[in-house]
């Protein structure tokens, strides 16, 4: 069902999910949006696909938390100490704020990327006034991760079918990871060139106005979804104004 939503609705969602908490100015608001994103991703059955990305960013956020917890400028209240290293509450809360924001951004973008066909994405960008070429570049940026995963699987098959051990213990798998990097990059470069020719001979660069096989039609759900989003946005603006007036 989520897959059927107009990509534009999803773009509006990204917008609202990131602006509204900023307007409201409460961590709870950010957290709520993360929760909503998780619910939407679960309905769309793609939540598990966010795992690699979250793992990676989690690692970075942890580093941020440690650095801020120890060195943040406004640090005064001691939260806890690990041996001689003291962590401060202000720094940790600051890091929490960053983490929530980053995760919120990632999750809201994931909805667009993981539940939209690449071609629909190009189409939306084109409707938004981007040139098809730029639209294609944008959508292939979003495609990088699934693409790389596929290339990696192909190359792994090539390597193990010629006697390289890639299965079994974690150590073997880590050892098998490094010889993958350069062929994956090389392969991506080559396929980009070939892809470009393939697109070209099918009239991709044509100045002709394009038509689309799938009329991206707004559904009733789109209307409801957008209405709710706009409402949230308006409410949060009110909230902001109220705070100012006080």
């Amino acid at each position: 069902m989520i897959h059927k939503l107009d990509p534009n609705s999803k773009i509006i969602y990204i917008f609202v999910a990131n602006i509204a908490p900023a307007l409201i100015g409460a961590r709870m608001a950010t957290a709520s949006f993360i929760l909503i994103s998780i619910v939407i991703l679960t309905i769309g059955k793609v939540l598990h696909k966010t795992a690699p990305m979250l793992e990676f960013s989690g690692l970075i956020l942890l580093t941020v938390a440690i650095i801020q917890g120890i060195f943040h400028q406004g640090n005064t209240t001691v939260a806890f100490a690990l041996g001689s290293v003291v962590f401060y509450k202000e720094g940790l809360m600051f890091a929490l704020g960053i983490a929530l924001n980053v995760i919120n951004i990632l999750m809201s973008f994931s909805i667009l990327v993981l539940t939209t066909k690449p071609s629909d994405m190009v189409e939306t960008f084109v409707h938004m006034g981007l040139s098809p070429r730029l639209g294609y570049v944008m959508s292939s940026v979003f495609q990088i991760i699934p693409q790389m995963t596929k290339t990696m699987a192909t190359i792994t098959d090539a390597q193990r079918s010629r006697g390289m051990e890639t299965e079994g213990k974690l150590k073997t798998r880590i050892k098998a990871f490094f010889p993958l990097i350069s062929p994956v990059v090389m392969n991506s470069l080559i396929s980009t060139k070939e892809r470009a020719i393939a697109l070209e001979v099918r009239g991709f660069g044509s100045k002709q106005k394009k038509t689309f096989l799938n009329d991206l039609q707004k559904t009733r759900y789109d209307d409801i979804f957008r209405f709710v989003l706009i409402l949230i946005l308006i409410l949060s603006i009110f909230w902001r104004v109220l705070i100012w007036l006080k």
Binding site: P118, S191, R202
Partner: peptide
Amino acid sequence: NQVTGCKL
């Protein structure tokens, strides 16, 4: 080499 890669 002829697959566009942007269609599913």
